[in-house]
């Protein structure tokens, strides 16, 4: 029997019906029409489906849709504020940090989550944080540099705001 789930997606209240065994990724991509999160493996090994669940990044393929009841879900579709790109998004574009772009939504959600908790990560920390996101095109070099520059931009911004 289908279950009714009420949740918040990118700040908006959303209600949907799902099978009890359906994953959050399936619900997002299917019922809710949010196809930004991708399925690369379905087993939590590639990170292309990364979303934030109550402020922590998770693989949405490893969350059952009914678990989202009453929780806060944030997806790639909610990263930009309207038409204003997040610094991580902007730096991905500036660096050419994507080739095919399929892994990009997962990387951006993960990188944003990192910079919100650590505004100045070392390259080592950054690489280990992003180790759950597979990219087959770039060799990660430009991704790492893009996130580093986004971090710098965000620190600059924070200093500006503080002043």
């Amino acid at each position: 029997m289908k279950m009714a789930v009420s949740t918040t997606v990118n700040g908006d209240p959303r209600a949907f019906l799902c099978e009890p065994g359906e994953t959050l990724l399936e619900a997002l991509r299917g019922t809710l029409g949010l196809t930004g999160a991708k399925e690369g493996c379905g087993t939590g090994d590639c990170g292309a489906c990364t979303v934030m669940l109550d402020g922590e990044m998770v693989c949405s393929c490893l969350v059952l849709a009914p678990e989202a009841e009453g929780r806060r879900v944030e997806t790639i579709e909610g990263v930009a504020e309207g038409s204003d790109l997040h610094p991580v998004q902007r730096q991905f574009l500036e660096h050419g940090a994507l080739q095919c772009g399929f892994c990009t939504p997962g990387f951006i959600v993960a990188a944003k989550a990192l910079l919100e908790r650590d505004p100045d990560p070392s390259e080592h920390d950054l690489r280990y944080w992003l180790a759950g996101n597979l990219c087959r095109c770039t060799g990660y070099d430009k991704i790492v540099r893009a996130v580093q520059d986004a971090a710098a931009e965000m620190r600059q911004q924070a200093r500006g705001d503080a002043a």
Partner: peptide, 21 residues
């Protein structure tokens, strides 16, 4: 030169439609 790719915004915002989408 290194301008932003034309399909860039679609691909960093989750708008771009891939095979499974």
């Amino acid at each position: 030169t290194r301008p932003v790719r034309p399909d860039g915004i679609d691909k960093v915002t989750g708008k771009a439609l891939y095979g499974p989408d």
